[in-house]
């Protein structure tokens, strides 16, 4: 029983990270109908930006086991990483995706795969392929309830992820840009006719999605101890599956999907076999696409001739 609870807690914390990344996929897909394969790499760059900026602020991996760093330093790291990733997201959109935006749908897909490959390999050159120990932005405190262990890191993940998701919700529902994003995902041509600067809105979508992925990257680093330049590949795919599972284009759907994928993965690894922890994600993907392609919380849209 304690084991099950422990697996569930671990699964949920992993799932909240997936959810943060899935938001970026779902927003971009909702508007451009593009699977932004490079999103996983933006997540990776976000994690590395956090790694280096923490280093620049004097937060190192070793000392932190015995020393507390003030919370505002952690926030600086978070904001730096989010800003850098947002910039990267906008750059990718500008240089790689905008030129092919009106090409047949598969052209941007291949471009996205290319960008993803490029960033992976550039990451290996810049950051070295060796896994790096993530700086201890938080010093670890463990709480034990009836044998179930929860660390302050897990709690931080839940809190930060929740805050960001609420913030995104407010952004999308209450601000002008958010409303424009929803208009674009409903019908991009009509939105253009209404005088919305679509380029600008798409740019903000990439910026917001990338910033969330970077936050996910930092939480991932804290939780998973090490980061490496290929960390975005599988994590990105899983987050994409989470977005599809929840219903692509749906923000609450991405959150639900992320949590479910995290749980499924953790339970498979714990009770079935860890060899199949990656396979289970793809099995879920295939099942959902075959049985309910609009996803759990998605809206059915009839394809018009």
């Amino acid at each position: 029983m304690t084991q099950l609870l422990q697996q569930i807690i671990n699964g949920l914390s992993l799932g909240s990270i997936y959810a943060l990344i899935a938001l970026g996929y779902t927003m971009v897909y909702g508007i451009l109908k593009l699977i932004n394969f490079a999103h996983g790499e933006v997540f990776m760059v976000g994690a590395y930006t956090g790694y280096y900026s923490a280093g620049a602020l004097g937060i190192s991996a070793y000392e932190a086991q015995h020393r507390d760093f003030p919370v505002y330093l952690g926030l600086i790291v978070l904001v730096t990483a989010m800003a850098t990733a947002a910039l990267l997201g906008v750059l990718i959109e500008l240089l790689a995706y905008r030129p092919v935006r009106n090409a047949p749908r598969l052209t941007p897909l291949i471009t996205a795969i290319g960008v993803s490959l490029f960033l992976q390999n550039a990451g290996m050159l810049l950051f070295s392929p060796n896994p790096q120990r993530y700086p201890a932005i938080l010093s670890e405190v463990r709480f034990e309830f009836f044998g179930v262990i929860v660390t302050n890191i897990k709690l931080t993940i839940f809190v930060v992820a929740l805050c960001l998701m609420l913030g995104l919700h407010l952004f999308v529902q209450k601000t002008w840009t958010g409303r424009a994003m929803r208009a674009l995902s409903f019908n991009i041509d009509a939105a253009k006719l209404m005088g919305i600067d679509t380029d600008n809105v798409i740019r903000s979508t990439f910026a917001v999605g990338s910033a969330l992925a970077a936050a996910g990257g930092i939480l991932f680093g804290l939780d998973q101890i090490t980061i490496n330049p290929l960390m975005g590949v599988l994590t990105g795919l899983k987050a994409f599956v989470a977005a599809v599972l929840g219903g692509i284009g749906s923000i609450p759907g991405a959150v639900v999907g992320g949590l479910l994928i995290g749980l499924a993965e953790q339970l498979t690894a714990g009770y079935l076999s860890a060899e199949y922890r990656d396979a289970i994600t793809f099995v879920i993907l295939i099942l959902i696409l075959l049985l309910k392609p609009e996803g759990l919380l998605g809206v059915v849209r009839v394809e018009k001739v």
Partner: peptide
């Protein structure tokens, strides 16, 4: 289109 692409990737 791209959904099929992702499913084949999964397979």
């Amino acid at each position: 289109g791209d959904y099929l692409a992702v499913v084949t990737l999964g397979f």
